[in-house]
Design a protein around this nucleic acid. Sequence first.
DNA 1: CGACACGTTGAGATATATCAAACGTGGTGG
DNA 2: CCACCACGTTTGATATATCTCAACGTGTCG
Lengths: 274, 274
Amino acid sequence: MPDATIPPFSDVDRLEIERGISRILRQRQIAPLTPEERALLLSSAIELRNVPPRTLIVRREMPLRESTLLLSGFVVRANDDLRGGRQVLAVHVPGDFPDLHAYPLKYLDHDLRTVSAVRLAVFPHAALDEINRSHPGLAQKLWFSTMLDASMHRKWVFRLGKLSAIARIAHFFCETAARLTAAGLRDGDSYHLPFAQFDLADICGLTSVHVNRVIRDLRERELCTFRSSRLVIRDAAGLARLAEFSPSYLYLTLPGLAIGERPEEAGNQALPQR
Amino acid sequence: MPDATIPPFSDVDRLEIERGISRILRQRQIAPLTPEERALLLSSAIELRNVPPRTLIVRREMPLRESTLLLSGFVVRANDDLRGGRQVLAVHVPGDFPDLHAYPLKYLDHDLRTVSAVRLAVFPHAALDEINRSHPGLAQKLWFSTMLDASMHRKWVFRLGKLSAIARIAHFFCETAARLTAAGLRDGDSYHLPFAQFDLADICGLTSVHVNRVIRDLRERELCTFRSSRLVIRDAAGLARLAEFSPSYLYLTLPGLAIGERPEEAGNQALPQR
DNA sequence: CGACACGTTGAGATATATCAAACGTGGTGG
DNA sequence: CCACCACGTTTGATATATCTCAACGTGTCG
């Protein structure tokens, strides 16, 4: 067994974990992690894990003793219903801590599955206990990151409860654009989204047939196109308007990160307006 | 100005706050608060507040410097859409900390409104900072309680995305039954639920007209009745089956708390079954 | 007693689901 | 390199859950 304080990572693995840690809370209203906090997290990681696409990572109600940071690829939380249907509860992008919720909760109420191939860094709960005891500032940032998930959950409730099919899809595209931009993963006016139409259906509470029609509608309205795992935004403002999208629930430092703008163009603080 | 360490509460107010604190995390898989933790919380409360029904308590995006514990009455989180519609994002019962999320987040992404008349105990964020620094165990329990909210948010996403109108209403009734039971607020096979039919509509993403028909349907199926602010459960198992309700996402110590059973009848631990 | 909010019922409209079939398209093995 | 297969996409026809609009009923409270 290797010495727990010096994880046996190769240089390239170490670099990848460092890059993932540097994405945590990037562009968020909570101050970014300090160099000491990043180093502490790096030293808490015990493993780098590769998972193939379409794989169950965590099954609901299984006791967990570790949590994982998503380094690359896409992961979803999901709940299956009795008729073989599946509802996606959240989508996670690199820099997210998908199962950090399991640290306070001890087990998850839902499954965690990969969509694309994924790399994960593993943090044992014992290490998080130590952080909780000795670094209350970092513990609070981890708490913040789980509260961000809760905020997104609430927006999803809103989306499913109050938006039409086309607005739901548009909203998901806007949200993902903003999050990937914050994570530094947007390419100009498009981004890589390795989802099938049935994934979008499971995300938005629709059938894949209807998703197909909605996507055509979005294309014909010249708002955006979605083909071969790439979303291209053609009219960011129009898309956001249709979706009733406003990014304040993402707690970004750059309000414009919403959609149309590049980080560099964005203005200053978002906070209170009324 | 009164001495901050000895809040100027009357004995009866103090008792009420103590009762509210004793409901926090009651029947949850995180161990209950220790006497010291309860005392610490009690000494952190600075105010007891009464709020009338149908009142906005917290407006979205307003910076907050305090969080409140719900002592009695019902509070909802809500988001309004552009057409004057309203989606309720969460319902809070006595013993909940509705805006504890604002402690890490600094402002809320949604409104907080009373439904019935409500009493709240106010905790300044400065006091929570102190707890965070000096009592990591209690801080983690507060984190847990916000993760419970996140878990319920996820179930609401599932509910809206995958359940029919009647199953959504049934699911909400089951969830509320379980939560009120845990809080010690259920009366036999019924409970007080001071909601109008349009509230249920805003909760379940339906119109109040349709809610009315669904409630009649539930009555005719002899599953439950809802009249004059009282829900009476007539067939708990049937209601739970219709709703696809399983309470593991509530992280209760007593699995049966779901519905039909009284706390005394319930068996032991829920944890992993597969 | 009257007013107002909430509940109830009906008829008709519509968004989305369901079912079924045809159509790409990328990967695999012969 | 081609043929084929599996999987996802696209399209059409029809079904249905839920919404919308509008009227009427009922209880509560001043």
